[in-house]
Amino acid sequence: MAVTTEVRAPHAPTELPRVTDPSKVPPNDARGLSKLFFDRLATLEEGTPEYQYARNTLIEMNMTLVRYAAGRFRSRGPQELEDIVQVGMIGLIKAIDRFDISREVEFTSFAVPYIVGEIKRFFRDTSWAVHVPRRLQEARVELAKATEELSSRLGRTPTTRELSELMNLPEQEVRDAKVASNGYRSASLDAAVSSSEDGESVLADFIGAEDAGLELVEDLHCLAPLLAELDPRDREIIHLRFVEELTQAQIGERLGISQMHVSRLLNRVLTRLRQGLQTTR
């Protein structure tokens, strides 16, 4: 174990041993050292250099816990092991920050559930391209197993009724599980689907076009609260100009003010609305 201890003055506060490479400390040694570091960490003020040293050393010394937990998930998905380790490190850091040594619990027993929980949350949040209810996620796994078993036994694709009987689920549940399976993987809109003399077609070509009216809907949605903040006369001017489509002269006659005054009021209100829209977008 690579540990060096600095010499200190007789009356200096107890210092932690300086570990030159915490990531290479053997697990058995790390267990004892971790207890020492946790004891000292509890007495240090957060944010001080010594606190950061103790916390960072604990993280590096216990990385073997993360790699051990991550190894259990090698076959769970296409994610590289290193990505899973990075996620598990978040769980390790949470465990270190929340560990209370006064409870007399082994840190390894406390940390592993945090690490595994963080990794499982990662798979839950990233494995499905769209949100699917948990019961259908679980049914998809059973559906895959049942389909493989029946296909092998029958020599053909099983029917929904046959799957329903084997899975002991209503036929509608089986249908829902089939639909849910489509949400497990997504395809890029730029994915090529066919080629011709005119060039290559992509999936987006067959889905539809952008609706120009959507931007107008968004603008109107943002504009509504801004209009509500106007005083009654300003709202009336906007209504007369853009709903009843009156000219400025006609608005002046309706309100008993000059066309010039209407123009100034209209410009002031429109400037205010434009600025409000730019802020909310």
Rank of each mutant, 00 (worst) to 15 (best):
E46P: 01
T48S: 06
E50Q: 07
E50V: 02
R55C: 02
R55W: 01
R55A: 06
T57W: 08
T57K: 02
L58I: 07
I59E: 05
E60G: 07
E60N: 14
E60V: 07
E60H: 11
E60S: 14
M61A: 09
N62F: 03
N62E: 04
N62Q: 10
T64I: 08
R67L: 12
Y68E: 11
A69Y: 07
A69G: 08
A70F: 10
G71W: 08
G71A: 08
F73E: 08
R74K: 15
S75G: 14
S75F: 13
R76E: 10
R76D: 10
R76S: 10
R76G: 06
R76L: 08
G77A: 12
G77N: 11
G77I: 06
Q79F: 15
L81A: 11
L81N: 09
E82Y: 12
D83M: 14
V85G: 04
Q86H: 12
V87N: 07
G88F: 10
M89C: 13
I90N: 08
I93P: 00
K94L: 11
A95M: 01
A95R: 12
A95W: 03
D97L: 11
D97C: 04
D97T: 02
R98W: 01
F99Y: 15
D100L: 01
D100Q: 04
I101Y: 02
R103C: 06
R103E: 05
R103H: 12
F107D: 00
P113E: 15
V116H: 14
V116A: 13
V116G: 11
E118L: 08
I119K: 08
K120V: 14
R121C: 11
